[in-house]
Design a protein around this nucleic acid. Structure first.
Lengths: 153, 153
DNA sequence: CCGAAATTTCAGAAATTTCTGAAGACTCAG
DNA sequence: CTGAGTCTTCAGAAATTTCTGAAATTTCGG
């Protein structure tokens, strides 16, 4: 097994982890290509070839990665093909995207409280849930701020 | 629509959000029952009836909620049925469970670095990924500590 | 404008996940 | 020890998700 094999094997392994983290399978594999390529940017066709997948599947994956802001389209004059690359702040973006879920949980807890009697046990449980997610949501901005500061060094 | 309808509708809505957050469908619906019931504890049979699902599906869901520590089994002397209830620290538990993923991502980034040339762009991208997840993993203990302190008040 | 090259879209196929239903195992009262 | 009630397991069914392949669309050089 040469170095390239090792490299792409590690890429597929990472893709699996990303899947566990909530990304769809093909989107995860595509993101792994963006990470592991030794080129500065790649085209959809190159990704399809690398993953041995249909161009259709890759098109969908690229579209979803673009929409969450993990990759970006590069202007490449004199080429008919679109070039893409991993964005600098991809990981922080992925993290905050998952935090959208936190906001949704908070909302769900609150509408649950509105639908239950204020003195019942259900209402109290939901209040506990709300408190936790309120806390989390409050901590996140400072967390990301600490990250961008540390990153500057 | 009476209050009970509203309550269980809110429960199903919350279950949907939990699904988006990564829980399996039936596990999410089951957890919603634990949240929204006005009883102090419920049995597997009651859950199945409430969700209009098979006892088999509920059995699996309860098992998985137990294994991640979201609910607990109650000792109920003189009853033939097992009683369960939501654990006090369920939400913090759910959050930290998701953080297992973070550790896996960190590992994947590191083994990726081991499989790529130290001076190539892939290696650099992976280093960026590693740095972010290292940062996150370092911040989490303090975050949860702040939560348990605030909770004490 | 036209044609070549690439990408996007979408209907149907394939694969995977999830649920049901029934059989078997377990527990406790009598 | 026995039987009723409850829970667990598991094979197959159902539903959902995901992918492929081909046709339609877009883009840009000539």
């Amino acid at each position: 097994m040469d170095d390239n094999d090792k490299r792409w094997q590690a890429a597929e392994h990472l893709a699996l982890r990303l899947t566990e983290g909530g990304l769809q399978r093909m989107a995860a594999r595509t993101l792994a290509v963006f990470l592991f390529t030794e080129q500065p940017s790649v085209t959809a066709g190159e990704i399809a070839e690398r993953l041995d997948a249909s161009t259709g599947a890759v098109s969908g994956a690229v579209k979803s990665l673009l929409s969450v802001g993990l990759i970006e389209r590069l202007p490449v004059p004199g080429s008919r093909r679109e070039h893409y690359r991993l964005r600098d702040d991809a990981w922080a973006t992925l993290f905050t995207a998952q935090n959208t879920v936190i906001g949704a949980m908070l909302e769900a807890a609150e509408s649950g409280m509105a639908a239950t009697a204020a003195d019942g046990p259900a209402h109290q449980r939901l209040a506990g849930m709300r408190d936790f997610y309120t806390f989390l949501l409050g901590e996140l901005p400072a967390l990301l701020q600490r990250w961008s500061r540390q990153r500057a060094t």
